[in-house]
Amino acid sequence: MYYKISTDNNIFIIFAVPNYNKFIMSLFSDNIRALRVKHKISQEKLAENLMITRGRYVKYEDGTSEAPYDILKKIALFFHTSIDLLLSVDIRKINIENLIKLEGNRLILPIQVDNFGENYIEIVSQKAKAGYLNGYADPEYIENLQKVSLPFLGPGKHRGFPVEGDSMPPHEDGCIIIGRYVESLGQVMDGKTYILITKNEGMVYKRLNKNKKNALILESDNSFYPNYEVKASDILEIWEYECNIGRSDKKQETTETGAMKDLLLELKREVREIKNNTSNT
């Protein structure tokens, strides 16, 4: 069993799969043929609903032609499923009726549970992190991740992600942030911390603010690192901070020590800005 989130942005990842023409097109053709037969609809009738000719549709079902995005979207809406499900999962092997449906035709596939019925939490280790951008929508990749169970977290889908660097103290290299899946940008709350999976920045853990339309401002708790912006269209997944798993028992710094460190970091940041401005002139 596996878990997978469908979003409108998944299409960009799916098209990056190696050997797309040989594998994805074949899987897509098999899927739309299986769905058409299951719904007992003819090729001609389906083509009519898609507002294309039967000859054009037959090429998609035979795998001799790639369906453009607008046709993919129409087919997904017609069968009440998601584009990435059509392209990446053999729907003949799963029970679509038992899938959990979200708004916008997004779906969650079944998830693994422990002996007490609690959802497992997949842990994206440091080793697995490099492949997450290409694997977050791949059932096999998700299924092979290490898993733990933390019943106290309550409802929701959770996943663990590794922390790198010192931009978000007190979290340190090696600790794991456990996040709860966020279905939409509207659920993001200003000032809270989140794991973001983005097409350009990869995996980041930051404090978020929605003070720009169709974009998020990412802030580090370490003032040495400047804020930056991520467009909503670049975001693949958002996971809200729930807890962290770490091994450090380092003593918390005193207020005076922390203030001195912040002053030093601010000085370093100003020096870096001066250097950048000098190099740009």
Results as ranks from 00 to 15, higher is better:
I177A: 02
I177S: 00
G179C: 09
G179A: 12
G179Y: 03
R180P: 15
Y181F: 14
V182M: 09
E183N: 09
G186L: 05
G186Q: 04
Q187P: 02
Q187N: 08
V188W: 09
M189W: 09
M189H: 10
T193E: 11
Y194E: 01
Y194M: 00
L196W: 00
L196D: 10
T198C: 13
T198K: 03
K199Y: 14
N200Q: 13
N200G: 12
E201N: 13
G202Q: 05
V204K: 01
V204G: 00
Y205W: 02
K206R: 11
R207N: 04
R207C: 06
L208Y: 01
L208H: 02
K210I: 12
K210P: 01
K210T: 11
K212L: 13
K212N: 13
K213A: 14
N214D: 11
A215M: 00
L216K: 08
I217T: 07
I217K: 03
S220L: 07
S220W: 05
D221L: 14
D221V: 12
N222E: 09
S223T: 15
S223A: 14
F224A: 10
F224T: 08
F224Q: 12
Y225G: 15
Y225N: 10
P226R: 01
N227I: 08
Y228Q: 02
V230T: 07
V230A: 06
A232W: 03
A232P: 04
A232L: 05
S233V: 11
S233N: 14
S233F: 09
D234W: 01
D234P: 07
I235C: 03
L236S: 15
I238A: 07
W239K: 12
Y241K: 07
E242A: 10
C243L: 08
C243E: 05
C243K: 08
N244E: 14
G246Y: 05
R247M: 14
S248Y: 05
S248Q: 08
K250N: 08
K250R: 08
K251V: 13
E253M: 10
T254M: 02
T254F: 01
T255V: 11
T255C: 04
T255E: 11
T257M: 06
G258A: 13
G258F: 04
G258D: 11
G258L: 09
M260S: 13
M260H: 05
M260R: 04
K261R: 05
D262G: 00
D262H: 04
L265I: 11
E266M: 09
L267T: 13
K268F: 06
K268G: 15
